[in-house]
Amino acid sequence: MEKTSSPFVDVSGAAPREQNMWPSIVITKESIDLEIARLQDIARPDNGRRASLIVHPQATRPGLGLSPGIDVTINVLNPGERTFNLRKNSNMVEICISGSGVAVCDGTQTRVSKFDVWNTPSMAVHSYYNDSNAPWVRLSYSNAPLLEKLEIHYVEEFEGDIPPADAGTTPAAAPNSSGGPRARDLALREQITEQGAWLLGYEWLIDIDVIESKSLHWPWEKVSQYLPSVEEIDRGYNGRRLFVLYNPATERRIGTTHSFFATISSSPPNNHHIPHRHSSAAMNYYLRGRGYSKVNGERLEWKEGDLILSAPGWAMHSHHSGDQTTSALTIQDHPLQIAMESLIWQERIKEPILTLGRQAGFESNRAQFVAAK
């Protein structure tokens, strides 16, 4: 009889493991453009997806990404091309970086053009087609690496309509469509301590209240109109000059999807951030301008069209614009970390480390500039 290894690992008195922080890297516009050109020239895949993952040198399978929990994919559709339908339990934020096309999500068509941003919810049936006369290029950010590491990434791809097994269902369909009481209304719901501990019956686990999660679109034509208002805040402002592309379905997690927030920034020339850090990872795609970032003491130069892993989780970092106005799309897994109660944040080096969402957060000095007007 073969010996089986013990399922136990003695960690009595063990010190915490030192975390393996991935270094920040810059993927240049030139290298992105070369990969876009390569994708344009390959034979069209059967499913229509001309795509290339951008992978960090330290990434390992399963779950290749630009950070341990976030992947970025370059997607190209040549004129007249269309992709198969796709459905997966990862969610996405996408940005059009050149050309234009139509994103279809749960039957709704959204026409997007340069710098438009949109989200794709989990398990939404989605596809893309290019009805223009120029290649359409977009960057897609998803939480697939995390789900791959958990071995729970559900993906299906198909032509035509929604699979027959799903016909007639909608994301918000109520299980008690007959009009009778919900099973969970008949299950136990009892507070058992004064401090707030409750007991709930099984049905509370399988019949969760629905908050509609749909694809939303943030057109650059509209978003860009608001950017001067943050760029023009006085130089003494100690916050970030940006807007969150907010999806109300994420509620207090302040996200664009339930995993990520997306922000669009606008910083004046020679603007310098105060160093800060957070457990959420962040990556910047620069829409205009040039400058540099300091990440864990390393200086990284960037410019328009570059993509940078700008803040590996818990890395001290700051961003500095050069001699031009600078704008970036930032993707950060802030909402996911709030949901896990793991979002620790240090807004300024001499301030405390706080668990955002569990403790009262930080204040900026915005009030003094509003009062001065």
Rank of each mutant, 00 (worst) to 15 (best):
residue 5 S to T: 14
residue 6 S to G: 13
residue 6 S to F: 09
residue 8 F to M: 01
residue 11 V to F: 09
residue 14 A to C: 13
residue 18 E to Y: 04
residue 23 P to G: 07
residue 23 P to V: 05
residue 23 P to K: 05
residue 24 S to A: 08
residue 28 T to Y: 05
residue 29 K to G: 15
residue 32 I to S: 05
residue 32 I to C: 09
residue 33 D to V: 13
residue 41 D to W: 03
residue 41 D to V: 00
residue 42 I to E: 09
residue 43 A to M: 08
residue 43 A to Y: 04
residue 43 A to H: 10
residue 45 P to T: 06
residue 49 R to N: 05
residue 52 S to K: 11
residue 56 H to D: 07
residue 57 P to M: 03
residue 60 T to L: 07
residue 63 G to Y: 02
residue 64 L to P: 12
residue 66 L to F: 08
residue 68 P to N: 07
residue 70 I to R: 01
residue 73 T to C: 10
residue 73 T to F: 08
residue 75 N to I: 07
residue 76 V to R: 01
residue 78 N to S: 09
residue 80 G to W: 04
residue 84 F to W: 13
residue 84 F to G: 10
residue 84 F to H: 14
residue 88 K to W: 11
residue 100 S to I: 00
residue 109 Q to D: 15
residue 115 F to V: 06
residue 117 V to A: 06
residue 119 N to L: 04
residue 123 M to C: 03
residue 124 A to T: 02
residue 127 S to T: 12
residue 129 Y to G: 11
residue 129 Y to K: 06
residue 131 D to N: 14
residue 132 S to N: 03
residue 134 A to L: 12
residue 139 L to I: 08
residue 142 S to F: 11
residue 143 N to D: 11
residue 143 N to P: 01
residue 145 P to K: 06
residue 148 E to I: 09
residue 156 E to M: 03
residue 161 D to S: 14
residue 167 A to H: 14
residue 168 G to K: 02
residue 168 G to N: 03
residue 173 A to I: 09
residue 174 A to N: 10
residue 179 G to V: 09
residue 179 G to D: 10
residue 181 P to T: 10
residue 182 R to E: 15
residue 183 A to P: 09
residue 184 R to P: 10
residue 186 L to P: 03
residue 187 A to H: 10
residue 193 T to C: 04
residue 195 Q to F: 06
residue 195 Q to R: 08
residue 198 W to C: 09
residue 200 L to E: 12
residue 201 G to N: 06
residue 203 E to K: 04
residue 203 E to N: 12
residue 206 I to N: 14
residue 209 D to L: 14
residue 209 D to E: 14
residue 209 D to A: 15
residue 219 P to R: 12
residue 221 E to I: 07
residue 223 V to Y: 03
residue 224 S to P: 12
residue 232 E to C: 11
residue 238 N to Q: 04
residue 242 L to R: 13
residue 247 N to L: 04
residue 249 A to V: 00
residue 256 T to Y: 06
residue 257 T to L: 05
residue 259 S to H: 14
residue 261 F to C: 15
residue 262 A to V: 13
residue 262 A to M: 10
residue 262 A to Q: 05
residue 267 S to L: 14
residue 278 H to T: 06
residue 281 A to W: 05
residue 282 A to K: 01
residue 291 G to Y: 09
residue 298 E to W: 01
residue 301 E to F: 06
residue 301 E to H: 12
residue 303 K to N: 05
residue 305 G to Y: 01
residue 309 L to A: 02
residue 311 A to T: 10
residue 312 P to T: 02
residue 323 D to P: 04
residue 327 S to E: 09
residue 328 A to V: 06
residue 333 D to T: 08
residue 335 P to W: 04
residue 335 P to I: 02
residue 337 Q to I: 00
residue 339 A to N: 12
residue 340 M to V: 08
residue 341 E to Q: 11
residue 342 S to A: 15
residue 343 L to F: 11
residue 349 I to C: 06
residue 354 L to G: 00
residue 358 R to I: 02
residue 358 R to T: 07
residue 359 Q to I: 00
residue 364 S to C: 07
residue 364 S to T: 15
residue 367 A to W: 13
residue 372 A to F: 02
